[in-house]
Design a protein around this nucleic acid. Structure first.
Lengths: 331, 331
DNA sequence: GCAGGTAGCGAAATCGTTTTCGGAAGCGCC
DNA sequence: GGCGCTTCCGAAAACGATTTCGCTACCTGC
């Protein structure tokens, strides 16, 4: 049992109200008393009970973010956005915390929100789930979607420019003379995947290159999920001279598979990633990728949740953030 | 404002106490009433206010874990232990959550604990801080240290067998004929680092090889921190035929630096890592490493916190978990 | 001297639960 | 009928903070 506000009150022979006011900067307490209270609080290592305070104030000043499976990917992505998100939440006087889901059950997210453990939540693209979104809207619970565009003007989201990024990649590859360019997509039918695919197709069309079904393959988010599709592409004759991977982690698999097969990257096959994760620095050559403004995304996403908390009536905003091609060797 | 217990009570013309008891499985409520309450709760999407419940019960059923800087490393390590930790906490009826620290200020950890936001905390080796530990002991707050042995019989910890792991690595390298083996250590004076160093020295002694100061270099936890030390080693003549890196992330840097310099791994220089992180699969060759039982560590660490919660008087335990050398190509 | 204002404090309600305690009703049994 | 025993429910007291409101002093200005 840590020291409570009433402990301080008793010790100083003051009322709990006065102590509370002294600690919270109310003006109707003399500076002498305030001094006394602050000193006592320090001495006793007083920290207000968050449960009591949250209950009374009806808010927690906490913002949540949920981990799910596809841990390998999520975690690498998260480590990119966390610095920005943490900095911003600190500025807003909130704390950012990350929940783990057992059994990857999205219902737990709703439980946590409804229980009032957090004031707002950041939804990661990988655990989007229309039922969850619908429920959050129903409850009028503040949330922002990160990394996926949601075609609904009631929901805020922050997304990188998938279309432009893919165009940048394709333009680079085409300019380098590549004509057989393979494309790895993700099986989910999301606006993000559609935008990337559209960028691919448009770029081919602009270069007056017909598209070949066999060059478009699917990958999942699990570890090593880039290996099989790469083998599949290598079985083609001729095999593609460039592979546009769905994201950096897949690109790692692609590069490793190619090199294991005795092919040189980028001389024999060029490879590109997407996202700009740390993983891109682990292969040799490093991965040429589309860098998302990760810190910026972290900031914006927290800022939007916070705005929504401050003015509940504020309209939802859907932001597309610019991305940038960075060439590191693999293409 | 979500539905509260009293909302249900009013709707059913029952008292809040009865509703609470119906929901919490008390026996002194008729099965008819219980049925009614459960149905109403479901219809109204009722979720008990965690603040109110925590306040009243004096516990939260939550266990915390704190992120700090050195994000790249921590996050990769975490993704290894999370599955085990989450599974175990679920079995214990707790929820595991991850706090972010602003400004990497360890004082925030104590604040969170004292505020009663969590019942127990898992301390990561990388943000060990003797003042924090002392304060937690003072407060009698349940905690367990992960990845670092603390020479104090009041604190529980779970650590991999650093000494044995290093011996396994060294024995393998020595058996392969290596005689000039470099060793990368971390600057912190921890029992973990000491154990690794001791393993290195003992192995050399057992093989009757004198040790060379210049082969022992330091690395930090920041990204790319393996590059400079590797260059430093390559400047030696002759340069070492094997490099024992402090952990897998450093090993990645080492391999990349060697390959960039035109050296082949493992033919020209063998490289080993430590920990068994996913990063070890991203290089080519993959990293030969000492695999920590990560999931197991996650489980144990949660289990120990939980035991401490259930029987506060239980003595602290210090567990060393066995590790295993896995050869993946880099040595 | 008095009205009006201000400064400083405390009483008390409140947030939404949990849990203890007691009471009412119903029943069986002597 | 009286006694005891269940069974079911509600009243009420917590948990520890915040916040409103009112009260007492004291001061100021006329």
């Amino acid at each position: 049992m840590p020291t409570s506000l009433t402990d301080i009150a008793r010790r100083l022979e003051l009322s709990p109200s006065t102590v509370s006011k002294a600690l919270n900067g109310y003006r109707d307490v003399s500076s002498d008393t305030r001094e006394l209270v602050l000193r006592a609080a320090l001495e006793l290592d007083y920290q207000p009970s968050s449960a009591a305070r949250d209950l009374r104030r009806g808010r927690t000043d906490r913002i949540g973010l949920f981990l799910n499976t596809a841990l390998e990917y999520v975690v690498d992505y998260l480590s990119g956005i966390i610095p920005g998100a943490v900095r911003c939440s600190q500025e807003c006087g909130k704390r950012l915390l990350i929940y783990t889901l057992t059994d990857n059950d999205p219902g737990q997210l709703l439980q946590v929100c409804r229980a009032g453990e957090i004031d707002g939540v950041i939804l990661f693209s990988t655990h989007y789930d229309s039922h969850t979104i619908e429920a959050l809207l129903q409850d009028d619970f503040p949330f922002v979607v990160m990394g996926r565009y949601i075609p609904d003007d009631r929901v805020s989201c922050v997304v990188p420019d998938y279309y432009d990024g893919t165009r940048q990649i394709m333009d680079h590859l085409l300019a380098a003379g590549h004509r057989r360019i393979a494309f790895m997509t993700r099986p989910e039918l999301t606006t993000a995947n559609e935008a990337r695919l559209q960028g691919y197709l448009d770029a081919l069309a602009a270069a007056e290159i017909g598209w070949d079904d066999r060059l478009i393959v699917e990958t999942r988010l699990e570890p090593d999920s880039g290996v099989a599709p790469t083998r599949q592409l290598l079985a083609l004759t001729p095999y593609p001279s460039a592979i546009v991977a769905a994201h950096d982690l897949v690109a790692v698999d692609v590069i490793n598979t190619l090199q294991t097969a005795g092919l040189r990257v980028p001389q024999d096959v060029a490879v590109t990633g997407f996202d700009g994760l740390r993983a891109g620095f682990r292969t040799l050559p490093h991965i040429s990728t589309v860098q998302q403004p990760l810190e910026r995304i972290g900031e914006r996403v927290v800022e939007l949740v916070n705005r929504r908390l401050n003015e509940p009536a504020a309209p939802a905003v859907q932001e597309t953030l610019p991305v940038q091609l960075v060439l590191r060797g693999s293409a």
